[in-house]
Protein backbone atom coordinates (compact mmCIF):
# COMPACT_ATOMS: atom_id res chain seq x y z
CA UNK A 1 0.00 0.00 0.00
CA UNK A 2 1.37 3.38 -0.98
CA UNK A 3 1.09 5.85 1.86
CA UNK A 4 -0.74 9.06 1.01
CA UNK A 5 1.51 12.01 1.68
CA UNK A 6 0.44 15.51 2.49
CA UNK A 7 1.83 18.47 0.51
CA UNK A 8 4.35 19.45 3.17
CA UNK A 9 5.53 15.86 3.40
CA UNK A 10 6.08 15.78 -0.37
CA UNK A 11 8.09 18.99 -0.21
CA UNK A 12 10.14 17.57 2.61
CA UNK A 13 10.77 14.35 0.70
CA UNK A 14 11.89 16.25 -2.39
CA UNK A 15 14.15 18.37 -0.24
CA UNK A 16 15.63 15.26 1.31
CA UNK A 17 16.14 13.36 -1.92
CA UNK A 18 17.46 16.19 -4.06
CA UNK A 19 19.27 18.49 -1.66
CA UNK A 20 20.22 17.04 1.68
CA UNK A 21 21.22 14.30 2.31
CA UNK A 22 20.23 13.17 -1.16
CA UNK A 23 21.71 13.97 -4.53
CA UNK A 24 23.24 17.42 -4.09
CA UNK A 25 24.95 16.76 -0.78
CA UNK A 26 27.31 13.94 -1.84
CA UNK A 27 28.15 15.82 -5.03
CA UNK A 28 28.93 18.98 -3.11
CA UNK A 29 30.84 16.93 -0.56
CA UNK A 30 32.87 15.31 -3.35
CA UNK A 31 33.64 18.65 -4.92
CA UNK A 32 34.71 20.28 -1.69
CA UNK A 33 36.74 17.28 -0.55
CA UNK A 34 38.53 16.94 -3.89
CA UNK A 35 39.41 20.62 -3.75
CA UNK A 36 40.40 20.45 -0.12
CA UNK A 37 42.46 17.30 -0.63
CA UNK A 38 44.43 18.85 -3.45
CA UNK A 39 45.00 22.10 -1.62
CA UNK A 40 45.78 20.46 1.70
CA UNK A 41 48.24 17.94 0.23
CA UNK A 42 49.82 20.70 -1.78
CA UNK A 43 50.47 22.59 1.43
CA UNK A 44 52.04 19.52 3.03
CA UNK A 45 54.22 19.04 -0.03
CA UNK A 46 55.28 22.71 -0.14
CA UNK A 47 53.38 23.25 -3.35
CA UNK A 48 50.57 25.70 -4.12
CA UNK A 49 47.94 23.46 -5.63
CA UNK A 50 45.02 24.63 -7.78
CA UNK A 51 45.21 28.34 -8.21
CA UNK A 52 43.26 30.09 -10.92
CA UNK A 53 39.77 28.67 -11.39
CA UNK A 54 37.04 30.02 -9.18
CA UNK A 55 35.71 33.13 -7.53
CA UNK A 56 38.21 33.84 -4.79
CA UNK A 57 41.68 34.88 -5.82
CA UNK A 58 44.42 32.24 -5.64
CA UNK A 59 42.24 29.47 -4.25
CA UNK A 60 41.24 27.47 -7.31
CA UNK A 61 37.93 26.70 -5.65
CA UNK A 62 36.18 25.61 -8.84
CA UNK A 63 39.02 23.42 -10.07
CA UNK A 64 37.09 20.15 -9.47
CA UNK A 65 34.21 21.50 -11.55
CA UNK A 66 36.59 22.41 -14.34
CA UNK A 67 38.13 18.95 -14.19
CA UNK A 68 34.71 17.35 -14.24
CA UNK A 69 33.63 19.41 -17.23
CA UNK A 70 36.82 18.42 -19.01
CA UNK A 71 36.24 14.77 -18.28
CA UNK A 72 32.66 14.68 -19.54
CA UNK A 73 33.78 16.14 -22.86
CA UNK A 74 36.24 13.33 -23.45
CA UNK A 75 35.58 10.39 -25.69
CA UNK A 76 34.47 7.22 -23.95
CA UNK A 77 36.84 4.49 -25.04
CA UNK A 78 35.73 0.89 -24.66
CA UNK A 79 38.49 -1.67 -25.21
CA UNK A 80 37.84 -4.15 -27.99
CA UNK A 81 38.22 -7.17 -25.78
CA UNK A 82 36.06 -5.82 -22.99
CA UNK A 83 32.83 -7.45 -21.90
CA UNK A 84 30.86 -4.39 -22.93
CA UNK A 85 27.67 -4.56 -20.86
CA UNK A 86 29.40 -5.02 -17.53
CA UNK A 87 32.20 -2.66 -18.48
CA UNK A 88 29.81 0.16 -19.26
CA UNK A 89 27.48 -0.57 -16.37
CA UNK A 90 30.11 -0.81 -13.64
CA UNK A 91 30.84 2.92 -13.15
CA UNK A 92 27.14 3.72 -13.01
CA UNK A 93 26.42 0.93 -10.55
CA UNK A 94 29.43 1.97 -8.52
CA UNK A 95 28.25 5.54 -8.14
CA UNK A 96 24.66 4.48 -7.42
CA UNK A 97 25.72 1.98 -4.77
CA UNK A 98 28.11 4.47 -3.25
CA UNK A 99 25.48 7.17 -2.92
CA UNK A 100 22.79 4.74 -1.75
CA UNK A 101 23.96 4.43 1.83
CA UNK A 102 23.36 8.10 2.67
CA UNK A 103 19.63 7.36 2.36
CA UNK A 104 19.71 5.33 5.56
CA UNK A 105 21.74 7.66 7.73
CA UNK A 106 19.93 9.99 10.15
CA UNK A 107 21.42 13.47 9.94
CA UNK A 108 19.31 15.30 12.52
CA UNK A 109 16.20 14.86 14.66
CA UNK A 110 13.08 16.66 13.65
CA UNK A 111 11.39 18.79 16.33
CA UNK A 112 8.07 17.00 15.82
CA UNK A 113 9.53 13.53 16.21
CA UNK A 114 11.18 11.41 13.57
CA UNK A 115 14.53 11.99 11.92
CA UNK A 116 15.90 13.91 8.98
CA UNK A 117 16.67 10.94 6.78
CA UNK A 118 15.40 9.72 3.44
CA UNK A 119 14.20 6.27 4.41
CA UNK A 120 13.67 5.16 7.97
CA UNK A 121 14.07 1.52 8.80
CA UNK A 122 14.88 -0.05 12.17
CA UNK A 123 17.50 -2.21 10.42
CA UNK A 124 19.49 0.64 8.85
CA UNK A 125 22.88 -0.55 10.18
CA UNK A 126 22.46 -3.92 8.51
CA UNK A 127 21.31 -2.31 5.27
CA UNK A 128 24.39 -0.10 5.13
CA UNK A 129 26.64 -3.06 5.88
CA UNK A 130 25.01 -4.95 3.02
CA UNK A 131 25.57 -2.01 0.68
CA UNK A 132 29.26 -1.89 1.62
CA UNK A 133 29.59 -5.58 0.96
CA UNK A 134 28.41 -5.05 -2.61
CA UNK A 135 31.36 -2.85 -3.50
CA UNK A 136 34.05 -5.50 -4.04
CA UNK A 137 31.80 -7.24 -6.56
CA UNK A 138 31.59 -4.09 -8.66
CA UNK A 139 35.35 -3.70 -8.59
CA UNK A 140 36.04 -7.31 -9.50
CA UNK A 141 33.37 -7.14 -12.18
CA UNK A 142 34.77 -3.98 -13.70
CA UNK A 143 38.33 -5.29 -13.55
CA UNK A 144 37.35 -8.55 -15.16
CA UNK A 145 35.17 -6.89 -17.78
CA UNK A 146 37.98 -4.57 -18.87
CA UNK A 147 39.96 -7.63 -19.91
CA UNK A 148 43.23 -5.85 -19.28
CA UNK A 149 46.11 -7.19 -17.23
CA UNK A 150 46.55 -4.25 -14.92
CA UNK A 151 42.79 -4.09 -14.35
CA UNK A 152 42.73 -7.76 -13.46
CA UNK A 153 45.61 -7.39 -11.03
CA UNK A 154 43.96 -4.37 -9.45
CA UNK A 155 40.64 -6.19 -9.18
CA UNK A 156 42.26 -9.17 -7.46
CA UNK A 157 43.94 -6.83 -5.03
CA UNK A 158 40.69 -4.99 -4.42
CA UNK A 159 38.86 -8.23 -3.76
CA UNK A 160 41.50 -9.44 -1.30
CA UNK A 161 41.65 -6.16 0.53
CA UNK A 162 37.97 -5.32 0.72
CA UNK A 163 36.83 -8.76 1.69
CA UNK A 164 39.50 -9.04 4.37
CA UNK A 165 38.51 -5.73 5.90
CA UNK A 166 34.79 -6.43 5.97
CA UNK A 167 35.46 -8.70 8.92
CA UNK A 168 36.94 -6.21 11.40
CA UNK A 169 34.27 -3.68 10.43
CA UNK A 170 31.50 -6.17 11.16
CA UNK A 171 33.14 -7.21 14.41
CA UNK A 172 33.52 -3.69 15.71
CA UNK A 173 29.90 -3.04 14.83
CA UNK A 174 28.98 -5.97 17.06
CA UNK A 175 30.19 -4.18 20.17
CA UNK A 176 28.18 -1.10 19.20
CA UNK A 177 25.07 -3.21 18.85
CA UNK A 178 25.72 -4.90 22.19
CA UNK A 179 25.99 -1.52 23.84
CA UNK A 180 22.98 0.12 22.24
CA UNK A 181 20.89 -3.04 21.77
CA UNK A 182 19.52 -1.91 18.41
CA UNK A 183 20.29 -1.95 14.67
CA UNK A 184 18.61 1.38 14.24
CA UNK A 185 21.17 4.11 13.55
CA UNK A 186 18.90 6.80 14.93
CA UNK A 187 18.52 4.90 18.20
CA UNK A 188 22.30 4.41 18.31
CA UNK A 189 22.73 8.16 18.12
CA UNK A 190 20.19 8.74 20.81
CA UNK A 191 21.97 6.26 23.04
CA UNK A 192 25.03 8.50 22.80
CA UNK A 193 23.23 11.63 23.98
CA UNK A 194 25.08 11.59 27.31
CA UNK A 195 28.33 9.84 26.42
CA UNK A 196 29.82 9.10 22.99
CA UNK A 197 30.84 5.61 22.05
CA UNK A 198 34.31 6.81 21.09
CA UNK A 199 34.97 7.21 24.83
CA UNK A 200 33.44 3.89 25.76
CA UNK A 201 34.96 1.96 22.87
CA UNK A 202 38.24 3.61 21.76
CA UNK A 203 39.65 0.36 20.39
CA UNK A 204 36.58 -0.21 18.27
CA UNK A 205 36.83 3.32 16.90
CA UNK A 206 40.47 2.87 15.88
CA UNK A 207 39.72 -0.49 14.31
CA UNK A 208 36.82 0.83 12.30
CA UNK A 209 38.69 3.96 11.21
CA UNK A 210 41.65 1.94 9.92
CA UNK A 211 39.43 -0.69 8.35
CA UNK A 212 37.32 1.96 6.66
CA UNK A 213 40.41 3.64 5.27
CA UNK A 214 41.32 0.29 3.77
CA UNK A 215 37.77 -0.14 2.46
CA UNK A 216 38.01 3.24 0.79
CA UNK A 217 41.49 2.46 -0.60
CA UNK A 218 42.95 5.57 0.95
CA UNK A 219 46.69 5.73 1.41
CA UNK A 220 48.47 3.96 3.11
CA UNK A 221 46.01 1.30 1.92
CA UNK A 222 45.53 2.36 -1.70
CA UNK A 223 46.92 -0.91 -2.92
CA UNK A 224 44.19 -1.69 -5.49
CA UNK A 225 44.86 1.64 -7.16
CA UNK A 226 48.64 1.69 -6.62
CA UNK A 227 49.87 3.89 -9.42
CA UNK A 228 53.48 2.72 -9.31
CA UNK A 229 52.56 -0.94 -9.51
CA UNK A 230 49.27 -1.51 -11.34
CA UNK A 231 48.90 1.89 -13.08
CA UNK A 232 45.42 2.64 -11.70
CA UNK A 233 44.11 -0.74 -10.68
CA UNK A 234 40.66 -1.85 -11.73
CA UNK A 235 39.52 1.45 -13.32
CA UNK A 236 42.66 1.78 -15.50
CA UNK A 237 40.81 1.48 -18.80
CA UNK A 238 38.04 3.96 -18.01
CA UNK A 239 38.04 7.33 -19.73
CA UNK A 240 35.94 10.44 -19.81
CA UNK A 241 32.59 10.36 -18.06
CA UNK A 242 33.07 6.81 -16.85
CA UNK A 243 36.31 7.77 -15.16
CA UNK A 244 34.59 10.80 -13.62
CA UNK A 245 31.89 8.51 -12.26
CA UNK A 246 34.46 6.16 -10.76
CA UNK A 247 36.28 9.07 -9.15
CA UNK A 248 33.09 10.61 -7.82
CA UNK A 249 31.89 7.28 -6.46
CA UNK A 250 35.08 7.11 -4.38
CA UNK A 251 34.14 10.37 -2.74
CA UNK A 252 30.51 9.28 -2.34
CA UNK A 253 31.90 6.34 -0.43
CA UNK A 254 34.01 8.67 1.67
CA UNK A 255 30.88 10.68 2.43
CA UNK A 256 28.94 7.58 3.47
CA UNK A 257 31.79 6.22 5.58
CA UNK A 258 32.44 9.44 7.47
CA UNK A 259 28.69 9.79 8.06
CA UNK A 260 28.51 6.26 9.39
CA UNK A 261 31.46 6.65 11.76
CA UNK A 262 30.02 9.94 12.97
CA UNK A 263 26.74 8.22 13.73
CA UNK A 264 28.33 5.22 15.38
CA UNK A 265 31.05 6.75 17.47
CA UNK A 266 30.91 10.53 17.51
CA UNK A 267 27.35 10.99 18.66
CA UNK A 268 25.85 11.98 15.32
CA UNK A 269 24.07 15.31 15.59
CA UNK A 270 24.48 15.68 19.35
CA UNK A 271 26.11 18.89 20.49
CA UNK A 272 25.10 22.15 22.11
CA UNK A 273 22.49 24.03 20.12
CA UNK A 274 23.83 26.91 18.05
CA UNK A 275 21.53 29.91 18.73
CA UNK A 276 21.51 31.44 15.25
CA UNK A 277 20.89 28.15 13.46
CA UNK A 278 18.45 27.01 16.11
CA UNK A 279 16.29 30.06 15.45
CA UNK A 280 15.83 29.04 11.82
CA UNK A 281 15.31 25.37 12.54
CA UNK A 282 16.63 22.98 15.19
CA UNK A 283 17.46 20.62 12.33
CA UNK A 284 20.17 22.97 11.09
CA UNK A 285 21.93 22.95 14.41
CA UNK A 286 22.07 19.17 14.40
CA UNK A 287 23.25 19.10 10.81
CA UNK A 288 25.96 21.62 11.66
CA UNK A 289 27.42 19.37 14.36
CA UNK A 290 27.10 16.36 12.11
CA UNK A 291 28.99 18.04 9.26
CA UNK A 292 31.67 19.33 11.60
CA UNK A 293 32.39 15.83 12.88
CA UNK A 294 32.36 14.51 9.33
CA UNK A 295 34.85 17.16 8.29
CA UNK A 296 37.24 16.25 11.09
CA UNK A 297 37.09 12.60 10.12
CA UNK A 298 37.61 13.45 6.48
CA UNK A 299 40.74 15.45 7.28
CA UNK A 300 42.13 12.54 9.28
CA UNK A 301 41.42 10.12 6.46
CA UNK A 302 42.93 12.39 3.83
CA UNK A 303 46.02 13.15 5.87
CA UNK A 304 47.28 9.60 5.39
CA UNK A 305 48.18 10.46 1.83
CA UNK A 306 50.56 13.17 2.91
CA UNK A 307 52.61 11.26 5.42
CA UNK A 308 52.54 7.54 4.72
CA UNK A 309 53.99 5.37 1.98
CA UNK A 310 51.82 2.60 0.64
CA UNK A 311 51.81 -0.82 2.27
CA UNK A 312 52.30 -4.05 0.43
CA UNK A 313 49.30 -6.34 -0.01
CA UNK A 314 50.70 -9.10 2.21
CA UNK A 315 51.54 -6.63 4.97
CA UNK A 316 48.05 -5.21 4.70
CA UNK A 317 46.36 -8.59 4.94
CA UNK A 318 48.61 -9.54 7.84
CA UNK A 319 47.60 -6.39 9.64
CA UNK A 320 43.95 -7.08 8.95
CA UNK A 321 43.84 -10.69 10.08
CA UNK A 322 46.35 -10.64 12.91
CA UNK A 323 45.94 -7.17 14.37
CA UNK A 324 42.57 -5.61 13.63
CA UNK A 325 40.40 -8.71 14.12
CA UNK A 326 41.92 -9.61 17.51
CA UNK A 327 41.57 -5.99 18.58
CA UNK A 328 37.92 -5.97 17.54
CA UNK A 329 37.32 -9.20 19.44
CA UNK A 330 39.01 -7.77 22.52
CA UNK A 331 36.69 -4.80 22.21
CA UNK A 332 33.68 -7.14 22.09
CA UNK A 333 34.85 -8.97 25.23
CA UNK A 334 35.46 -5.71 27.09
CA UNK A 335 32.05 -4.49 26.01
CA UNK A 336 30.38 -7.68 27.16
CA UNK A 337 31.86 -7.39 30.62
CA UNK A 338 31.36 -3.67 31.10
CA UNK A 339 28.04 -3.16 29.34
CA UNK A 340 26.03 -3.72 32.54
CA UNK A 341 27.58 -0.60 34.12
CA UNK A 342 27.41 1.61 31.07
CA UNK A 343 23.97 0.82 29.69
CA UNK A 344 22.05 2.60 32.49
CA UNK A 345 24.05 5.74 31.74
CA UNK A 346 23.11 5.76 28.05
CA UNK A 347 20.19 7.86 26.97
CA UNK A 348 17.24 7.12 24.78
CA UNK A 349 16.98 3.36 24.99
Amino acid sequence: MIPILSFSEIIELILKVLIFPGLAFPLLFAMIVIWFERKFLARIMLRIGPLHVGPLNRTGLFQPIADFLKLIQKEIIVPDNAYKILYNAAPIIASIVASMSVAFIPYAPKPDGGYWMIYYTPWSLLVILAIFTARPFIMVGAGWASNSKYCTLGAIRAALQLLAYEVPIALSLVSIVIMSRTFDLAKIVEAQSSIWFIILQPIGFIVILIAMMAELSRRPFDIPLAEQEVVFGWPTEYTGTQFALVMVSEYFDLCAVTSLITVLFLGGWSGPAIPILNDVSPILSGVFWFLLKMAILTVIIIMGRGIYPRLRIDQLLDAGWTLLIPLAIIQIIITLFTAQWWIPLLGGV
Binding site: L41, I44, M45, L46, R47, R219, P220, D222, A226, E227, Q228, R305, G306, I307, Y308, P309, R310
Partner: peptide, 16 residues
Protein backbone atom coordinates in the same frame (compact mmCIF):
# COMPACT_ATOMS: atom_id res chain seq x y z
CA UNK B 1 62.45 6.26 -4.14
CA UNK B 2 59.65 7.81 -2.15
CA UNK B 3 57.48 7.89 -5.26
CA UNK B 4 58.09 4.19 -5.73
CA UNK B 5 56.67 3.56 -2.28
CA UNK B 6 53.87 6.06 -2.83
CA UNK B 7 54.96 8.85 -0.51
CA UNK B 8 54.50 11.91 -2.67
CA UNK B 9 55.43 14.39 0.02
CA UNK B 10 59.03 13.26 -0.07
CA UNK B 11 58.96 13.71 -3.83
CA UNK B 12 58.35 17.41 -3.45
CA UNK B 13 60.61 18.20 -0.50
CA UNK B 14 63.95 17.08 -1.94
CA UNK B 15 63.00 18.43 -5.37
CA UNK B 16 62.45 21.74 -3.66
Amino acid sequence: FSVATGLETMLMWPIN
